[in-house]
Design a protein around this nucleic acid. Structure first.
Lengths: 254, 254
DNA sequence: GATACACCTTTACGCAACGTCAAAGTCAAT
DNA sequence: ATTGACTTTGACGTTGCGTAAAGGTGTATC
């Protein structure tokens, strides 16, 4: 049996271009070239192609396949094991991706279709997710994993009333911060009220309170650009003001 | 906060080249260009980039991300659902790949390390696998899935003696076919012996025999290039000869 | 003010595995 | 002789950047 490119391509279910490419990269050469310059493939090429396609199905790169089929001394089993590791890693990553996509779908659908109660639980998950996504890695480095996980757990256990309370508190903190800032004195009455409100708000997330941690967090509001941006949004300098107020409130320096 | 390319790149954990590329493909443009031609990014670009990277993590193409973030009317949830389908398909394919790679590893290791008995069972699996791989899809279309599965099941239940017998029979079929072919007459004694041997061989794979099926298979040996190549290897025309002999033996035409 | 050094710019090629023209020759049949 | 279906080589396009190359800018230091 002798085949021209298209014949062999049809037989194998691939394109003629692919065969020319395989010729080009020296992975499968025709037996001979006829007088008109046509590529002619024989039985052994058919077999070799079958092998190539088999490995290709396994997702192995042509470069690696070349090694496998040319160097007969090559350790095919080892190559396969290595490849398996790669596949496993890919699978793990893919599973993660899928989980995230599904979470996101749940969230966006939640925003539009869910009942209030469902919306609320979806929102809690979203709060945690967004926190993780935005700050997770860095914060997990600065604080202990345990702290973060406890915070997340606490959020998940919030009731709907808690949620409304915390949302309200967040608003109050920002509003009072704006007033206190106009006033100009972190140590003043309004300034200290902000710090207190902030502590109240914080207690919805933290399982235990310490002045040191509170002061440290306040410092981070200044150090971390993203937190800073949040508190600086209404007035530049808001983050610093809040930090000063909290430092005075706690009697600490972060 | 204003950022040059590298500043923003560091903040986001990507390369400056990537930002220039995003500018080039109109997915993230700097707020402004300063007098020296430097790209300057602002807060809103930081946020937008965050969004972009989020979708990118989900494995969405930049082209699609562009649609998602530019056209605010775009149905993001639908896009996500569609993307999830893609991911699921990919995952399924990947699982299949992994299974195949692991099977192959088991086989190649089996060839080198297994005891004779183990080697034999590995070989059976290999026979089934190779059959599936080579002909599975097409044959499953021509015949019923049930037939194939039964055949595979029968192979798995073969004893070591069965295996030797079937291997021997395969040899005998080919040898007798060669002799009969020289003789030239499919209806002759040798020709009919080939058909009989072929039936015996077949019975190791089929759970039930019918003349129609046997004749049909014989016809396929001619129609399918790969089967044909197998029986034509020693003498061109072998496949046709075998078909004719079996058609006479069964008294049928496929 | 010269120099060093770290930044910035645009331009452009490279990667994997082909798909997809384009221009030109070949083969078999009508 | 003319179709029409094949073949050849050559070369550009795809995705998401990496990686020089060649040159301008900003700032600190001598």
């Amino acid at each position: 049996m002798e085949y021209t490119v298209q014949k062999l391509a049809n037989l194998a279910g691939i394109s003629a271009r692919t065969l020319r490419y395989y010729d080009e990269i020296d992975i499968l050469k025709p037996t001979r070239i006829n007088s008109s310059g046509y590529r002619i493939y024989g039985q052994s090429e058919v077999d070799k192609l079958q092998q190539i396609l088999f490995y290709k199905e396994l997702g192995i790169s042509l470069e690696s396949i070349k090694e496998i089929i040319t160097a007969s001394s090559f350790d095919g089993a080892a190559a396969l094991r290595e490849h398996r590791e790669k596949l496993l890693a890919k699978k793990e990553q893919l599973d993660l991706l899928l989980a995230n996509v599904e979470k996101t779908i749940a969230l966006t659908e939640g925003r539009t279709n869910m009942t209030d109660k469902e919306k609320f639980t979806g929102f809690k998950q979203k709060m945690i997710d967004e926190n993780e996504k935005k700050y997770g890695e860095e914060i997990r480095q600065k604080y202990s994993n345990k702290t973060i996980d406890q915070s997340n757990a606490k959020v998940m256990n919030m009731t709907e009333e808690d949620y409304e309370a915390v949302t309200n508190l967040e608003k109050q903190v920002l509003e009072t911060l704006a007033q206190a800032f106009e006033n100009g004195d972190p140590a003043g009455e309004l300034g200290q009220k902000v710090a207190e409100l902030h502590k109240k708000w914080l207690m919805y997330y933290w399982s235990e309170y310490s002045k040191e941690a509170h002061a440290g967090l306040a410092q981070m509001y200044v150090d971390d650009e993203r937190f800073k941006a949040y508190y600086d949004e209404k007035q530049p300098g808001g983050a610093e003001f809040l930090r000063d107020a909290i430092h005075i409130y706690t009697g600490m320096k972060g």
